[in-house]
Write a protein that binds this DNA or RNA. Structure first.
Lengths: 246, 246
DNA sequence: AATAAAATATGACAATTGTCATATTTTGAA
DNA sequence: TTCAAAATATGACAATTGTCATATTTTATT
């Protein structure tokens, strides 16, 4: 299991075994698909764990013992190069399956690190129990196939963008997707609820922090966005969309 | 279905319905997993199609009617940007599943283009029949989940490399994987059997053709490789491995 | 409220990679 | 074999992005 790199904030990683069907579970497609009976059985095999900022859910190289589902909050999947540079592959949201990112795969070790972004709650289940459940439930297996197909598609789209688009286009595309995936309409634009620093954005689009800061400063000057991590507002979504594909 | 952009070479796209269990099918993991009876049934629902250079198996935007398996030869999966730049996501080999690259996913249209590299043979099956088969065969469904998990993992590794590594490192990594995946030992090094032009390499690692040519010229001068597409030889695999991660 | 840590900001410069032009060589089809 | 097309090669230059240094502002914790 992963060590904590520094003292945990607010919420220590408390484990509560099988909390009696708490709310929030109905947002998880994979569980919805199961019959009431199977769902109960599966929940009996799952553990809920909470993590706070600075902790790790698992790290690159850890053995893959568990299958995971995000219940609350967001989780980022990260890979590092030997010289310490980091790249964020994906921000997982509630309902997302992961086991670092290849939700299921036959490697014995995690190919990446999973970190909470703020306070999160994660469900997990032994890999063996998960496989057994899939074998016994064709609907669940089909749902996982569908999910993985979509994730693969998404990962390949990301590779394409990294290969072909400029930094400012990639950043604009990120802002568009943030607005669409986690934005709430406000008087002056769309506020992004996921809290991302410029460094987080840099890691998501494959540039240095300085480059992300400079491009965001330009976007701010052009009135496309305003604010930073705590309060990022998309002010001109249409122009960002155009920029992303220009 | 896709149009031919120019006259086909040698082999026109001939369709042969259910060829009586030809050799080569035993290399396909997904089919091996089925019982003899189910395999026969599935083969009865599959069609074999041959394609030659310059043809398309399907194109970005085509409706996704079929599920595909590579039987012979290699197939490349390509995505394009609006301004005509191309990026090759993956070279599929015999046994690989595809439906452009998200072997199964719930999009109605192909997110990328599949092109033969030389002469290839592809098996295909209606999507509905494929889903039905998976539902009825937990082993097959688990194999597809395993396969997709690995593909996702691979795609994310590719994204990481594109985000963090320099062009020469990415090219060195490509050469290493070519040597390992399709190399044959010869007196003066490892010959790569997949025929890739400098432009193909450029598209695989996300650089321009000129950059790929220049870097390959440098590698040649440093005696790491020799020859071009028709006869590419890896002369110093260890040094390329070091370069790929430096 | 005070303070340390983290995040944002900006300049100067270097390294990497792309663009465009043009020439030569190799390959494949008639 | 011949010839056109494709692939390889190379130079000059521009654009993009990274690196390093340093300053300021914001955020979170005591």
């Amino acid at each position: 299991m992963s060590k904590l790199p520094k003292k945990s904030s607010i919420l220590p990683a408390v484990e509560r075994s099988n909390p009696g069907l708490p709310a929030g579970l109905n947002q998880i497609p994979l569980l919805q698909i199961l019959s009431a009976q199977d769902r109960l059985k599966v929940l009996g095999e799952m553990t809920e764990t909470r993590y706070g900022k600075g902790e790790y859910i698992f790290r690159e190289g850890d053995p893959t013992e568990y299958f995971h589902i995000v219940k609350e909050g967001s989780v980022k999947c990260v890979k590092s190069s030997l010289d310490g540079k980091e790249c964020t592959l994906k921000v997982l949201m509630p309902g997302d399956l992961f086991c670092c990112d290849a939700a299921t795969f036959d490697g014995a070790y995690h190919p990446g690190t999973a970190q909470p972004m703020g306070d999160v709650s994660v469900l997990r289940m032994k890999k063996e129990a998960y496989f057994k459940m899939l074998r016994a439930n064709p609907d669940a297996a089909m749902e996982v196939i569908r999910y993985l197909g979509n994730r693969l598609n998404e990962a390949q789209e990301k590779a394409k963008v990294l290969a072909l688009d400029r930094a400012d286009q990639r950043l604009a595309a990120l802002l568009v997707s943030l607005a669409e995936r986690s934005g709430v309409q406000e008087s002056n634009g769309i506020r992004v609820t996921v809290r991302l620093t410029r460094q987080d954005m840099a890691n998501l689009v494959g540039v240095t922090t300085e480059t992300a800061i400079r491009i965001m400063a330009r976007f701010k000057k052009e009135r496309l966005v305003s604010g930073t991590a705590a309060r990022l507002v998309i002010r001109d979504l249409p122009k960002l969309k155009i920029l992303a594909s220009t």
